[in-house]
Design a binder for these strands. Structure first.
Lengths: 204, 204
DNA sequence: GACCGCCTTGGTCGACTGCCCAACTACACG
DNA sequence: CGTGTAGTTGGGCAGTCGACCAAGGCGGTC
């Protein structure tokens, strides 16, 4: 076994995990090399050896979590056989998050950090854009009008719900689902002509 | 004129303004006393003289901006004569914000900071709760079913749209409005009986 | 055995942090 | 005019920050 190289990768993973936790607990700009190293149980200098800078560590850690969540949610959403069911599955997947949990906070922190870091912004836009495109494709199958606009608004609404849930615990899936279902059913289902209008909203 | 006391209040206001700007530019936890003092054009020690701590300055600055925005939006929304018109007015008021502007970022930063500061959390919940209650009252007048749930989801969706707009410029009011209008029209209009159900959601 | 390169350690550097305080100014009041 | 007080200044303290680096441990390859 390549024990040295193996240990190196383990240290990398532990630093990424520690960084992701700390972003949620303390906030993006409050995470320091020593803080992450201490939680990972390694020396402080290793952050710069493995990642070069604090920002690189934070970006890689955050994108890793976000990609994992997206990869998890993708297959689950493919089971939906209607817009209402899609909303239910989406909210059910999110009902495990309280709004003050590490994952929810990490998402919002990353969005804000992406506002100030062009590289992170591009990487994050790629991940979220792919997720949005997948939802739009499902909505188009269901005959929802203007699926890209609907998907963009739906994902934004879901993130907003998670953000508000931290302050308003009543914002549960059970309370939100009927409203969001109406959102898609009211705008969608033009009756006979699907008029998907995939042009509007570009392609991402 | 009370020149000394007057100048004192001006320094306070300039510190609050500088802090609000810096929260948006650098992030909540990255704002320092010297940073705010330099932008306000005053000595660093004044932050602790006027506010006691950095957190107190940040909290007061953020809540001041948020209260001002809420006070501005309130009367405008009162002109709405239907749920669709309410959404239009709400989004029209927000179309001036790009998602990367100081006000939008300050909102999200404050939400995140409230997650970690119980005092700030309570104060913020009071402001947002009042705004939500007002919107719920209007929705109830329009005959929308479960107005509190609808209002909570609507405000969360609007904040989510502002958060996503920073990464997706296509998320304009023109693209979002029809989807959110459907959200209220589909769920609302129970027909005759208003059944406002004011109990749900309490009164915050 | 000697050698090599990845990984790790512990420490140092200048800069910055929140908070505090003695000294100072300028105005208000008696 | 003297005195009190709110406001202000600049410096100082102890601690933390990101980044860097010389030194050494370690396993793998000859």
């Amino acid at each position: 076994m390549a024990t040295t190289a193996e240990r190196g990768r383990q240290v990398r993973q532990r630093l990424l995990r520690a960084a992701a936790e700390l972003i949620a607990e303390r906030g993006w700009t409050a995470v320091s090399t020593r803080m992450a190293a201490e939680r990972a149980g390694v020396a402080a200098g290793l952050v710069h050896y493995h990642f070069g800078s604090v920002q690189a560590l934070l970006g890689e850690a955050a994108l890793g979590v976000i990609r994992a969540v997206a990869a998890d949610a993708g297959p689950a959403l493919r089971r939906a056989r209607g817009p209402g069911e899609l909303v239910d599955l989406l909210l059910a997947a999110l009902d495990g998050f309280s709004g003050t949990d590490p994952v929810s906070l990490l998402f919002t922190e990353t969005y804000l950090a992406a506002t100030r870091d062009p590289v992170l912004r591009a990487a994050l836009a790629e991940v979220t854009g792919a997720a949005r495109a997948e939802i739009a494709a499902r909505l188009a199958e269901f005959g929802v009008a203007a699926p890209h606009r609907a998907a963009a608004t739906l994902t934004a609404a879901v993130d907003g719900v998670m953000l508000h849930r931290a302050l308003d615990p009543d914002l549960t899936a059970a309370n939100v689902a009927p409203v969001l279902r109406a959102m898609l059913q009211g705008a969608g289902r033009t009756g006979s002509a699907p008029q998907t209008d995939s042009r509007a909203g570009g392609r991402g």
